[in-house]
Write a protein that binds this DNA or RNA. Structure first.
Length: 216
DNA sequence: CAGCGGATATTCT
DNA sequence: GAATATCCGCTGA
């Protein structure tokens, strides 16, 4: 007799909904990353929604490319991309096939496999920092482009799956502008997080990056 | 915590 | 060439 949350996979239907419905519903759920050295479990505390059809902030807004092809595929799969020349981020594809919407996983609390995650994040100074931010989350869970397209809803062997976990109470969920999104995409308050959770990343407004080192 | 600059793949111009 | 769904190391509170 325990308060152990049900260890049940989220069904594919969970992801086959409008992305703004799926995103807040993911908070509190458990992501399981099966590595060769053992499992790492993460409780999701912060996410952002991206809708390819209406959203200038979405990678898919300007159509399909080699990088974003997975976003156009069936729901319940991982879209992993490489950004800023050195980091990976993981999204979960939502909506029907062809719609190109996805939820960016921005932060979470490491539940098990903490030493494995810490080994991937040697610079982190506290356990709360291990997955505080999308690139940090991917690094802690050893996620890279080789996992792009992974089915997270299969009952078979898979490197990543999403368990039902314990959904965050709706009165603890907050939403606001997305971190680092500029232009017209800044209008959508599609960042969702669990209020007061110590693993949520600080909000950073969009700041256009300075020029690359000037060629001499 | 806030602010700053640097590192760099992918995409569009 | 320029922008982008970022993080790190530094400085200062």
């Amino acid at each position: 007799m325990t308060d152990e949350p049900a260890r049940v996979l989220l069904p594919r239907d969970f992801f086959d909904r409008p992305v703004v419905d799926v995103a807040p519903d993911l908070l509190g759920r458990t992501l399981v990353r099966h590595t060769p050295d053992g499992p790492i479990e993460l409780r999701l505390t912060e996410v952002e929604a991206y809708d390819g059809e209406s959203d200038p902030g979405s990678h898919a807004y300007r159509g399909r490319t080699a990088r974003n092809a997975t976003m156009f595929g069936p729901p319940g799969h991982a879209y992993v991309y490489f950004i800023y020349g050195m980091w990976f981020s993981i999204n979960l594809v939502c909506g029907p096939e062809g719609k190109a919407s996805a939820v960016l996983l921005r932060a979470g609390e490491i539940l098990t496999g903490t030493s494995l995650a810490a080994g991937r994040r040697p610079k982190a100074r506290s356990t709360n920092e291990l997955a505080k931010g999308p690139a940090r989350l991917a690094a802690a869970l050893d996620i890279d482009r080789s996992l792009d397209g992974t089915d997270v809803c299969t009952t078979g062997a898979t490197p990543i799956s999403i368990l039902h976990g314990t959904p965050a109470p709706r009165d603890r969920v907050r939403n606001g502008p997305r971190t680092g999104v500029g232009g017209d995409g800044a209008d959508h308050p599609w960042r969702y997080w669990i209020d007061g959770d110590p693993t949520v990343s600080p909000y950073r407004p969009h700041t256009p990056r300075r020029r690359t080192a000037t060629a001499t």
